[in-house]
Design a protein around this nucleic acid. Sequence first.
RNA 1: GGCCCAUUGGUCAAGCGGCUAAGACGCGGCCCUCUCAAGGCUGAAACAGGGGUUCGAUUCCCCUAUGGGUCACCA
Length: 475
Amino acid sequence: MVRTRFAPSPTGSMHIGNLRTALYEYLIAKHNGGVFVLRIEDTDQNRLVDGAMNIILDTLKITGLTYDEGPNIGGNFGPYVQSERKHLYMPYAKELVDKKQAYYCFCTKEELESRNLHKYDRHCFNLSATEISEKLANNVPFVIRQLIPEGSTTFTDEIFGNITIEHAEIEDQILIKSDGMPTYNFANVVDDHTMEITHVVRGSEYLTSTPKYNLLYKAFGWEIPTYVHLPLMLNENGEKLSKRRGDASFQDLLDMGYLPQAIINYIAFLGWSSPDNREYFTLPELVEVFEIKNISKAPSLFDHKKLAWMNGEHIKKLPTEDFYQLALPTLKQAIKANFVDLAAIANIVQSRIAFLHEIPELVDFIDTLPNYETALFIHKKMKTDLEISQTALKAILPVYENLNESTWNNETLYNAAVECGKSLNLKNSQILWPIRTALSGKPSSPGGASELCELLGKPETIRRINIGIAKLGES
RNA sequence: GGCCCAUUGGUCAAGCGGCUAAGACGCGGCCCUCUCAAGGCUGAAACAGGGGUUCGAUUCCCCUAUGGGUCACCA
C-alpha cells in the first residue's frame, strides 16, 4: 500500500512550490490506489503564524487534493499535528542514546558561537556518564545530537538516481531541541516511520540531507522509504520562489483570476510531462496518468503566459451552465440593461476570454452604446465607406422593423441582411459591417451583426440603427 | 568556499547510440469567417563549450562554464 504525506509548516501563505509538492504526493498515492496523509509540522514554535493552518486546509479543499488522514478527520496514525505528538519523540531519541547513536549535548548557543565552529566539535560526546547524569539531575538545558559515524552513505532517489555523500560533510545534527521539541529532521523520520509512509516526496533541497535520515533509519533498524525528490520551481527570473521576492502564492493566483483547476493543471506540468501530448487535464485525469518516471530533474520556471492560456482552456471546457454561474457576478456588474439575457452573453463570451475580468471590456457596449465616431464605419477590408454604410443602414431598418419578434433570431436576421444587401448590390460584408458597427459602436465585438441583433433584441436594435443613420447623416 | 544536483528553442518539454531533434505556450504568416475570438494549417526559434568511448553521439564518461541547492536548537 502506497502512503504519501504532505507535511507543510503553518508559517504563512501557501506557495505554489508547496502546492506542487502536495499535488505530486497526492497523485503518486492516488495513482497507486494509496493513501494521502496530511501532517502539520509545527515543531518550530517561533515561526507559527495565525491562520496558516486554515490556509493549508482551504487550499487542499479548493484544489480537490483531499487527504485521507490528517487533522480534523483523524486516522489510525494520529495525531497528525507534530506539536501534539511531542511526547512521542523523546523516547525515540533516548533509544538512540542508549544505542550510542546519539548523545546529550549541553553546549549553549553562545558557547558554540564563541568557539566559531564550522561543524560541531563533539565537545559533549566525551562527557563521562557521571558528568551527564549530574547535569541532567541539575536540570541543565540540553539537546540530543545524532552521532554521525565515519564513512559515506549512498542512497537511491527515484528521480535523481544514486547519490553518495561523505559523512565528513555532515554535522552531528540536533535531534531534540532544548525546548524538548524535536527538530524537523528527527520528527520527520519518526513520523514517516510510525505513519508507515512508503514514499517520501519532497523538494530537491533535501537531497543533501537525506543521508542523515538514512543513518537514523539504520540506527533504529527501520526500513528506508522510497525517496522522490522533486526538481525546484523557480520564478520567471530563474530565482527560487519566495514571498520576499513577491512571487505569487496560491491565493495570489486566485486573486488574479486563475481557476484552481487551471493552476493544478499547469503546475502538474512544471517538472512532469504526460506520456502522450495532451496538456489539458482534470485532477482525476492526472491521477490516471501520473507516474514518477515522467518527472524530470531540471528545475523549471513559472510562466504566467502559459498559465493564462491554460486558464482559457479550462474556461472553454467548462459546461455552459457552470460557466454561466461562475461569470454571473461579473456579468451582473457589467450589464445593468434589462433587455438582454445574461446567459446568452455568457455563452458568447466563454470562448473569448482567459479570465473572468476580461468580460466587462468585452461586453460593455451591450449595456450602453459608446459614443463612437462615424469613421468606424469605414473599413478597408470590408469595403465599406460612409456612403455605403448609410445606404445599408437605411435599407436594413425597415426590413428589421417588419420582422416579427417571434422570428427575431440569428439565422433570420442574417439572411434578411444578406438579402437586403443583394438587392442593393452590396457584398455581405458591406451590409453586415455597418450593422455590426451601429450595434456595438466598437471596432470589434464578440459576435457578428446578426448575433448582436439577436442579443440586443428588436427595440434596441432598431434604436441603435437609427442612431447610426443619424450619425452618418451629420457627417 | 566544501559538498550535492542540473544544463535540448524566450518558457514548459519529448528524446533514453543512428531521427529532416516531437509537441505546447508565446511570437509571425495563411485559411476559415458577419468584426473579434475560437478552430485549422504554417514559419522563425534549441542539444552550454571542449575532450574522450564508439563505425556513429543530444543520448555514455571526464573536464570546463553557467545556474541552482545545501552546509541552523528553520522546515
